[in-house]
Computed example of a mutant assay.
Amino acid sequence: MSEEGHRTQQACTEATFTVLLSPTHRGVRLARLLAVAHLDAWGLPSEAAAHIVAELAANASTHGRVRGRDFQLSLYVKEKTLRIEVTDTRGDSVPPGPGAVKAPEDDGAENGRGMLIVEALADHWGIAPGPVPRKTVWAEIDLVR
């Protein structure tokens, strides 16, 4: 077998990916697929990140949607941390911050648990306002535990 057949994938220590996506079901799905593809290419685990991206993108599409304006997905790897950012154009529609997220009162509700999932999977997360009319919801995952 050639040397190429034995090559192991090395994880990136610095990488960046940013894309604008439509605030639609298709845009949300594409955000998740692109995140997984880039993390896999960078040699990084993608399962938790895929769930976080899906929830943040779904929130941007649902609560941050403004007709004719896209949301932005950004992935940053710096040393031992993956940072996921989703920026939308509804700075006036802000989710509860870290530690303030609550489950929906109706146990049978079909939505309302997205930020609980983010809070459970991310090591750190938060909300950054601006520039007006935008907001960014970010989550960080420590790559070395």
Rank of each mutant, 00 (worst) to 15 (best):
L75S: 02
R90D: 09
L121D: 06
P129Y: 05
G108H: 13
Y76R: 06
A120S: 13
V101S: 05
L82Y: 01
S74K: 03
G130S: 13
R90M: 13
R83N: 03
D107K: 13
A109W: 14
S93V: 12
G112I: 08
T87K: 04
D106Q: 06
L75H: 04
G91I: 15
I127P: 02
G114W: 07
E85L: 01
S93K: 13
G99Q: 08
P95G: 09
T87R: 11
D107E: 11
V77Q: 02
P129D: 09
W125S: 05
V132D: 15
M115N: 04
G97Y: 07
T81V: 14
E119P: 02
Q72T: 12
K102N: 10
A103D: 11
P131F: 06
D106K: 13
T89W: 14
G99W: 03
R134A: 14
A122F: 07
V86K: 03
V118I: 05
E119H: 05
P98L: 07
A103V: 07
I84C: 02
L116R: 09
W125Y: 09
S93M: 15
S93Q: 15
K135Q: 15
T89L: 11
G114I: 05
V101R: 04
A128F: 01
A120M: 11
Y76P: 02
P104E: 10
V94I: 15
P96L: 06
V94F: 12
H124D: 12
G112Q: 10
P95I: 08
P133T: 13
V94Q: 10
P104H: 14
K102L: 14
Q72Y: 00
N111D: 14
P133M: 14
L121M: 04
P129N: 04
Y76N: 00
R134C: 14
G91L: 08
L121N: 05
V94Y: 00
T81R: 05
G108N: 14
R83K: 12
D92K: 08
E105G: 15
P104M: 15
P131C: 12
